[in-house]
Simulated scan of single mutants.
Amino acid sequence: MDFLSLPKRTTGNRVYGLTCIADFGTSMGELRNILADFHTMIDIAKIGIGSAYVTPNLRTKINLYKEHEIKPYCGGTLFEKCYYQNKLNEYIHYLHDLGIEWIEVSNGTLDIPLQTRIELISQLKESFHVIAEVGSKDCRKEMRISEWLEEIQLLLEAGSEYVITEGRDSGTSGIYEECGTVRCELIHELIKNIDPKKIIFEAPTPKHQMYFIKEIGPNVNLGNVKINDVLMLEAQRCGLRSETFYLEEHECNLL
């Protein structure tokens, strides 16, 4: 029974307002229980880092996500490992065999030239939905705001459906300072110049998530969300937490 006035959320097969979880080893039994209750709050599931390669019952896990209409894909670290070892053809076959339809092209660990990533995306978009990632996992490597803008725009133009802004699972690099503080000037420039519906902001903690909800709106795309936090995040999006309590539909100008 709906009787509260809440910010309007996207529903169903969302193309924005995405909640993208990071699965860093959720057991099958726990996953079945979580998805039974909360699958409608999850849109994309990343098998974190390169863990897919050593995950027991990986095919069963992938099929479980797909049964609940959640899009699974492998973390960018596995892509980079395959690129480094010149095994991308084998990786593509591996993903097709598993029935994975999404692929991440990243350079969080390796310094893969932008032009190389653009060329790879142009090829991969024929067989996969591509998610690109911008930013380094090394907090000592800072990109100028102009570089962020250029890379994101070029990666979208190459055929990426979304671009992820690096934040790590700790929220200490990329769009964050090493101490975990959001690089607010960077975020403001990104959403001013690029459609935020095409950006997935890595936001691993409730504090980070609340920043983006308040700054951009309840239907901001958020990534690296812990699987046990999806209900709390949905409550935050709906203005049902103190920090987002006064979030009203008319205030959500962007999303």
Rank of each mutant, 00 (worst) to 15 (best):
D229S: 14
Y16I: 03
V163M: 09
Q153D: 12
I42W: 00
F24L: 14
I92M: 02
I216L: 14
F245L: 11
E157C: 07
L255K: 05
P72E: 06
D97G: 01
L58C: 02
G50W: 13
L255W: 13
L124N: 07
L110S: 05
T19M: 00
E243M: 10
L78A: 08
T172F: 09
Q236I: 05
C179D: 15
E30G: 12
P56N: 15
E249A: 03
N228A: 05
F245G: 03
Q115I: 12
F24V: 03
N33G: 11
E30S: 14
P206E: 00
Y53H: 11
G223F: 03
K8S: 07
R168I: 03
F201C: 04
E243G: 10
S122F: 02
S136N: 06
G159N: 04
I152A: 07
H39E: 04
N86C: 06
A45S: 13
A45G: 01
G99C: 08
H208W: 01
S160Q: 09
L190T: 04
A203D: 01
S136W: 10
G75K: 05
L190W: 02
E80N: 09
E30F: 08
T116D: 12
L4Y: 11
I47D: 06
T40Y: 12
R144E: 13
C179E: 12
F24T: 08
G171E: 08
S27R: 14
D169M: 14
G50Q: 10
T10N: 08
L247N: 01
L149R: 03
L155S: 06
M28T: 13
A203M: 04
A52V: 08
P7I: 11
P218D: 07
N219K: 02
E151S: 14
T60I: 04
E119N: 13
I194S: 01
I42N: 00
F3W: 13
C179S: 15
I227K: 00
E251C: 07
E166G: 13
G174V: 11
I213N: 00
F128A: 11
I103F: 05
E150I: 01
S127C: 10
L233Y: 02
Y176K: 06
L35P: 04
I213Y: 02
